[in-house]
């Protein structure tokens, strides 16, 4: 545990001294701000009260692009600059390294997420009698779980390459596949698509968390996806030793 924390703390601190991380966070917030403004104006014109969904919708989509940019560095950079040798010859278990990296990235993403609270707070001020608290809570819980899985996948992919660009695009590719994998099932009809639908990110978000519903099976989905990705990341790191 102590090693996990040591590694996570280093990563977390490093993000705050890295211009790339600030850039990603800024882009995320700026783009969200534009969409937020448009959505709020749109709902006022259409005369229905905006709720947290005008924040959650764009946030979830933008996370698909922002997360790879945040996680790509985690292990790829260690490989490129040769410091992976330092960590693998220190008395640190492989899973501690992977989980530590994940935790560092996850905590940084949480700090970005904390900033997006500005939008619901603002929304709460302008809407009478205030926004739907249920959607706010379940929506953010869903986003946090979702983000945990994204960062875990990002760490696992980052263990594969020493080139950050390669990591970025591979991670994004994996995200998009998991985001869209249930689409073909619509053409396949009701049968046969069960598995694909179960694997899909959005199936576990839009019909539940996004609507203010907290379903245990969705929580289990995201937690097990996170655990699986971290396990695969550990395997991949271990396999480096045998290559």
């Amino acid at each position: 545990m102590r090693n996990i924390w040591t590694i996570a703390a280093r990563e977390f601190k490093l993000y705050f001294s890295s211009p790339a991380a600030y850039l990603v966070a800024t882009m995320l917030l700026v783009v969200m701000g534009i969409i937020f403004y448009t959505n709020v104006v749109g709902s006022i014109l259409n005369q229905f009260p905006p709720n947290t969904q005008v924040v959650l919708g764009p946030l979830v989509t933008l996370l698909l692009f922002a997360t790879p940019a945040i996680t790509m560095r985690l292990l790829a950079e260690e490989q490129r600059q040769g410091t992976l040798e330092l960590l693998l010859t220190a008395p640190v278990r492989d899973y501690e390294l992977i989980v530590g990296k994940w935790l560092g990235g996850f905590l940084f993403m949480l700090s970005i997420l904390a900033l997006t609270w500005l939008y619901p707070i603002f929304l709460n001020q302008i809407v009478d009698p205030g926004i739907d608290q249920g959607i706010l809570v379940s929506g953010y819980l869903g986003v946090i779980l979702f983000m945990g899985s994204l960062v875990a996948i990002g760490v696992a992919v980052s263990s594969l390459f020493s080139n950050q660009i390669a990591v970025f695009f591979t991670t994004l590719g994996v995200f998009l596949v998991l985001w869209l994998i249930s689409l073909p099932t619509q053409a396949m009809g009701a049968t046969g698509g069960e598995l694909l639908r179960y694997l899909d990110f959005s199936e576990h978000f839009y019909s539940t968390f996004y609507q203010g519903v907290i379903d245990l099976s969705d929580i289990i989905y995201f937690l097990s996806l996170t655990a699986l990705a971290l396990f695969l990341g550990t395997m991949s790191l271990e396999s480096r030793r045998w290559r």
């Binding site: 102590r2 090693n3 600059q81 410091t83 040798e85 330092l86 220190a90 008395p91």
Partner: peptide, 24 residues
């Protein structure tokens, strides 16, 4: 190691402290 494994974005003290922490 042959290629000295250092984190360029840390200070010397931070780096050594990090390694010392990993070694408890």
């Amino acid at each position: 190691p042959e290629t000295v494994p250092l984190y360029p974005d840390m200070t010397v003290f931070e780096y050594l402290k990090f390694m010392a922490d990993l070694r408890h």
